[in-house]
Nucleic acid binder design. Structure first.
Lengths: 208, 208
DNA sequence: AATATTAGTTATCAACATATTACTATCAAG
DNA sequence: CTTGATAGTAATATGTTGATAACTAATATT
């Protein structure tokens, strides 16, 4: 028994380690023994900080949900025009995913055993809020004349979401979070260009 | 010991059951005991048909990869024009996913332990081929004048892939594969409309 | 009908994961 | 310096899972 950290510090370490392992091998494969070993502790030490293993995931889900919500709030707080606000929202979310690359894993995680506690509810709620923010911003962009008036805001939001999803899938397959910020801005611009009333600007920019 | 099926029939049942369970609870949570119970067998009975559990997943991955490839081949075999061929490719793939809703789970599955055998290689290869087919079709559509000439075929393919991904995520969260065919055609049309040289047709169709 | 093949069962193992209990050593406050 | 609280350990109970060995019975072939 060499060092002994404070409970808050240790909990922080445990959650971060669990997140890292979740991205590496998948959330369902992460064991308390692995987390402990990674931190140089014994397995029961984990249970000094969480009564049940699921409580670790619950804490993580809460943290991730908060990060998602923060980004939404940040984009709304900025006094940007609708179109720029929309871009900030999407690129900000990509940044959150890049910083927490295990996030997509939790979004598609199944609930445990008999549905006792739905661990990933926080994340689902946050993503629901993100989608609502997308729709809201698309609507505002239409109102501001940035997008053509006949555009369905829900469908447009789905397509914009698709830009994120497409990048996330490539990240998960390649295990490289860096591609999010590398390709994200360009692809988002291309997607949004499809919604402009007149496509002169974007079209001219990319054509020979 | 009531009935006794042939090996091929039983293997088929085992794989189908494993696939169903994989969609329900996630591939990593599926145990040999579950599969056996679902079929009214004992757990070791599974090992009369597969030496290792991973062999089940390998067989499934091979099957899914084949389904993906078949759809690609089918779209190319059709004598359709580039744009219709592209639509057939995408909607056909959505159909494959709808029929095998666990497919996305396998795409993001991590490889086992020490990387002994990469089970999901067949699927990754097939998806690589699918992406190549997307790019090829986009290029053809540009050549045929369906898309504007400055369009980057790789980026366009990524966005079209995003339509699929966006729908797949909603399927995974809602556990409802039906939305793929319900919303797929409409969203695909909306996405492709963003690539047309003149947007009159699609724009007029939706704007009042 | 006799026989060989093999799908399936029973019993069992080893490995691993969650969790509990009792003990110990560290740290901070009095 | 003493002491109370607690982070951490050792040991262990309990359950699940992948896998093997030996046996049994259904099926097909001769």
């Amino acid at each position: 028994m060499r060092i002994r950290k404070s409970a808050v510090d240790r909990k922080c370490e445990i959650e971060q380690t669990a997140l890292d392992l979740a991205f590496k091998i998948g959330p369902s494969q992460v064991s308390t023994g692995m987390i402990a070993k990674e931190l140089g502790l014994t397995q029961p030490a984990i249970y000094r900080h969480y009564p049940k293993k699921d409580d670790i995931w619950a804490a993580i889900a809460l943290h991730l949900g908060t990060r998602i919500d923060e980004n939404i709030a940040l984009s709304f707080a900025s006094g940007l025009a609708p179109l720029d606000r929309l871009k900030k929202l999407v690129l900000g979310h990509l940044h959150v995913v890049k910083e927490n690359p295990a996030l997509p894993d939790f979004m598609v995680l199944r609930d445990k055993t008999n549905g006792h506690i739905v661990v990933q509810d926080s994340i689902h709620d946050a993503m629901e809020a993100f989608r609502a923010a997308l729709v809201s911003n698309v609507k505002a962009a239409i109102g501001a004349g940035h997008f053509y008036s006949g555009l369905d805001e829900n469908d447009a939001a789905t397509l914009i979401f698709g830009v994120i999803q497409s990048l996330v899938l490539r990240m998960m397959v390649t295990r490289n979070p860096a591609i999010l910020m590398k390709d994200g801005p360009r692809l988002l611009d291309l997607q949004l260009a499809g919604f402009t009333p007149t496509r002169e600007t974007s079209r001219e920019a990319v054509s020979d």
